[in-house]
Amino acid sequence: MTGHRHDALLVDLDGTVYAGPAAIPGAVEALEAARGRGLTVSYVTNNASRAPGAVSEHLAELGLTVTEEDVVTSAQAGAAVLAGQVEPGAPVLVLGTEALADEIRGVGLTPVRADDDGPVAVVQGHSPDTGWRQLAEAALTLARGAVWVACNVDPTLPSERGLLPGNGSMVAALRHASRREPQVAGKPATPLLRQAMERVGSTTPLVVGDRLDTDIAGGNAVGAESLLVLTGVSTAADLLAAPSDQRPTYVAADLVALADVEAVRVGADDGWTAKVHDDGSLELAASAAGDDDREDRVAALRALCTAHWEAVGDEGGAPAVRGGDDAARRVLSSLGLGADR
């Protein structure tokens, strides 16, 4: 990242650094190179299922230079949110893993697992073992007016097999049953990112991730620039249709772009021309396509975003897209856009 425009990288994990247990190609090398240039790298995850130590061990196994202090989780943020609202030592019903229970313990509260234990709050984080019985205990607690904090509301969780139900899907079940709305600690709400910024003393971070509705919206919520990588959940079509609060500063194929993030800024001259027609449709044409097919198609996407976002304003929405030449049509097909996709 030339010029050190940012004083820290706040990097998402699932879908950004790894998919399942395996690193995304190029991610480890790009992050190590950023550290070598003097940038602080923090790993900020909405996944509340694992302790920071377990996450840092996994990252170290992938080849990253990392300590437990470099990892900030939504479980930590959720525990901090609760600690500011209930009395020290108060019982909190934990709907999640033991790692989440440990974070509740760490802020001086008492984790419990049943409504009979008199909890004054519910904290909910992802666990693959959450089922009806756990949700039922939480519903009983919420019916008594308890404080409810969701570590995150991500509807899906990326894996090497595809998208799996995330914590947000379980939150939705409890929301429907209780007719209550939780406070949210993770992205796009601000507690998690603010905690990460405070930990490293950052004032101009770059928020990096694969999801528009969490990573990018979260970066915008704390007034930070953001980089979307197309290695996880959000697609080219999602990006093009995004409302203003989910639009990133930079867009790239993957974390390799950290070497020169200004080169992937939305609005830069990328060698593509996008024209908005009177009916709101977009036409893409190649003016000076590059040598790297992968980056070239993302350059085309940035050109489309620049034209479309300027035309539609804050609301967003999906436009019709067509290619004005063979190169443009090929790129649109590879992005899943255009009439011939």
Rank of each mutant, 00 (worst) to 15 (best):
M1V: 04
R5Q: 07
H6W: 08
V11Y: 00
L13F: 03
D14E: 05
G15I: 04
A22T: 14
A23G: 09
I24F: 05
G26A: 10
A30C: 12
A30S: 10
L31Q: 11
A33F: 06
R35P: 12
G38F: 13
G38I: 03
L39G: 15
L39N: 14
N47L: 11
R50Q: 15
V55S: 04
S56L: 00
E69G: 14
V71D: 01
V72F: 13
V72A: 09
T73V: 01
T73P: 07
S74W: 01
Q76G: 10
Q76D: 02
Q76Y: 14
G78L: 07
A79T: 01
V86P: 08
P88E: 03
V94L: 13
A99V: 03
A101V: 00
D102L: 07
E103T: 08
G106K: 07
G106T: 01
L109I: 14
L109S: 14
L109N: 09
T110Q: 13
R113E: 13
A114T: 10
G118R: 03
P119S: 08
V120C: 09
V120E: 12
V123T: 08
H126V: 04
D129T: 05
G131R: 12
W132M: 08
R133K: 02
E137D: 15
A139E: 15
R144S: 13
W148Y: 13
W148Q: 01
V149C: 05
D154C: 06
D154A: 03
L164N: 13
G166Y: 03
V171P: 05
V171C: 06
A177G: 06
R179L: 11
R179G: 15
R180M: 10
P182M: 03
K187D: 01
A189D: 02
L192D: 00
R199H: 11
G201T: 13
T204G: 11
L206I: 11
V208E: 15
G209M: 07
I216Y: 06
A221H: 05
V222Q: 09
S226Q: 02
V229I: 12
V233G: 02
V233F: 02
V233M: 05
P248N: 00
Y250I: 14
V251W: 00
V251K: 04
A252K: 04
A253L: 13
L255H: 00
L255Y: 02
A268N: 09
D269Q: 10
D270C: 01
G271A: 00
G271Q: 05
W272A: 11
V276Q: 11
V276E: 03
G280E: 05
G280Q: 06
L282T: 01
A286R: 11
A286V: 04
D291Q: 15
D292K: 06
E295C: 11
A303P: 10
A307G: 07
W309V: 14
V312S: 08
D314A: 14
G317D: 00
A320S: 09
V321Q: 14
R322V: 12
G323Y: 09
A328S: 13
R329C: 11
R330T: 02
L332M: 12
S334A: 07
L337K: 08
R341A: 14
